[in-house]
Design a protein around this nucleic acid. Structure first.
Lengths: 153, 153
DNA sequence: ACAGGCTCTGCATAATTATGCACATTTGCG
DNA sequence: CGCAAATGTGCATAATTATGCAGAGCCTGT
């Protein structure tokens, strides 16, 4: 009997995979499954195999490597700006408005762009507001999952 | 009944693998074996598996990718300078002296450096002469195999 | 609220890759 | 030159990864 189909779970699991790979040298998917379980994520080798492909992760010699783009994104960049985020709301099915502390919108937007989340079509940042465009309602949900994971509810 | 242990064959096979991967999208080692056979190289999946690891080749999603360093080396770079090379001789077990047309040593040395052959410790180029340092007699043989493959006997 | 269509999963298993062995050559040293 | 130590291989097979299927939850439109 197949298990729960929790969309949000997938997003969180993938974010966790990226984080884990950034910190550890993982040689096989089975290890990754163990590490994920350790932090409460449900996962099987099957899902991990699919996630890795989806994430563009590459296997070199004896360890999995994040693609250059992801690698370039220093975790600190993202973490640094997380405190600037005040909140976000959907404005229709494809536009999300994110509010930040005054004057920090630009830097938050840059961090978002660097994250290269596939569901994001583009962003525009003002002074304390960022407009994030997504392709569909579904993509918007993905985005919100990501935002929730990184900035809290 | 193991087959021939021809050191030079290994070097040539690996060079061929690099070239093939640079031109084609190869998804499995079996394909690579076929392509190698096609150009006269002897190889089994076993050897290819070992070569790929040794070459630092990475498997991303559904194709093998050369490491960035190798990728950066445009084949043309190397081919362009090959005509400048007059010849080379060993000067002791760890030093190889390569002679080039007057004034072209620098560019040939740069191409050599970009190739990043593991057996090469370092190079110094004068006007028409390049000193290539290798770690051991064995490494020197590797180097000569490489030189022979690219510049002819 | 229901139907039809998508997406995401786990499971079982096919497909691929990695590696222990045994052995042929080569290399390194007297 | 002769022998012990390294290397490099293929083969057979273990170890890993990928994927066809069928089920379960979610979404969209009515």
């Amino acid at each position: 009997m197949p298990v729960a189909t929790d969309l949000n779970a997938q997003t969180q699991r993938r974010d966790a995979i990226v984080r884990i790979l950034r910190q550890n040298a993982v040689a096989r998917q089975a290890e990754l499954v163990t590490l994920l379980h350790r932090e409460g994520h449900d996962a099987t080798q099957s899902s991990v195999s699919r996630d890795l492909r989806e994430l563009g992760v590459v296997k070199g010699g004896d360890r999995y490597l994040l693609p250059a783009a992801e690698d370039a994104l220093t975790p600190s960049h993202f973490e640094t700006v997380s405190s600037f985020v005040k909140g976000y709301r959907a404005a229709g099915p494809t536009l999300t408005v994110l509010r930040t502390s005054v004057g920090t919108a630009q830097s938050v937007a840059i961090a978002l762009d660097k994250a290269r989340w596939p569901e994001v079509i583009g962003t525009i940042a003002g002074d304390d507001t960022i407009f994030i465009a997504t392709e569909s309602a579904k993509a918007q949900r993905r985005l919100h999952d990501h935002l929730r994971t990184h900035f809290g509810r």
